[in-house]
Amino acid sequence: MEERSKERSSSRKNIYRISGIVLAVLIALLLPVICGFLESGAYYLNVINYIFVYTIASTGLNVMTGYSGQINLGGAAYFSVGAYAVVILCNAGVPTLLSVVLAMLVVAFFGFLTAVPAAKLKYHFLALATTAVGEVVNNLLTVSPGGITNDTHGMFVKALVLFGFKFKSDASLYYLLLIMTALCLLFTWAFLHSRTGRACVATRDSVDAAGSCGIDVRQYKIIATVVSCVMIGFAGFLFAYLNRYISPDTFAAGKSTMFMSMMMLGGSGTLFGPFLGAVLITLIMELLRGIQGSGPYMQLTYGFILLIEMMFMPQGVSGAISDYKYKKDRRRMEAAGGDGKDA
């Protein structure tokens, strides 16, 4: 009798889940249409597009920081290299798809270049070193050799053309970004469940234990860094075509902090944490922007959110939620008496 009711409740749960997923997918697919009916739909769609880009970037950061345990405060460097490399190659007449591939190779090489010496640094110094990487790259963008980045004048970006289709409207970009975000999340999931991914997580949890299991810690740290850099660089490429204008000030140190704060606020080391963080931070900022007279306090609020988050829930929102659930479960088990202890 009891088992049957359990079964029934779990099958009901499954129905809820499936209908939830279907609803989510439906909403995600129809969002541009819905936005078309809204008064400020174009603006909302634009904001959602930025959320997708930042989700990809902070998911990339999550691979390095959340899963492999190496802090990176220079995310903007890889972001900018990805953006600039694609735009420069495209302007030189290289086909878009090829230039994206080439640009990702550039980012990967660049990531490798910094990962090799950085893999032996402890986290505080890794924080310092990655900050410096971010600074150096930003400096080189402003005074580039031969002026290839057009220095502080910035570069205009033409509309993205892929397979003969021109991604000019926000709606078309939305679908592109939606697919790319889904693919990136899927890739991250697959990566984490691969042998390499598991090894990376093991190095985060305990370097010594991982080493004693025969894992080459340094090698996996480098792999995680390169994968992470490529994902951030890919987000940079999408950003360039979304923003349609890139200049060095967009890739300043503040951007690295933003990626970090998105990842931390959502919950580092969780698959959907970065997405959650990107949504929360972008929404909070945009809602604040909507309140007249709040302008001067926007940055202050952003700082405070980050500070309070670090003080009271460093595991992020998803960490706090699972913490709450865990406590609730335990309370229920305790209330049930001896039953809970066995389970």
């Binding site: 802090i71 986290y123 003080m311």
Partner: peptide
């Protein structure tokens, strides 16, 4: 490790 990011937040504030 959180101090690194908390001090960044402090700096912004």
């Amino acid at each position: 490790i959180y101090v690194v990011i908390a001090t960044l937040a402090l700096s912004i504030v």
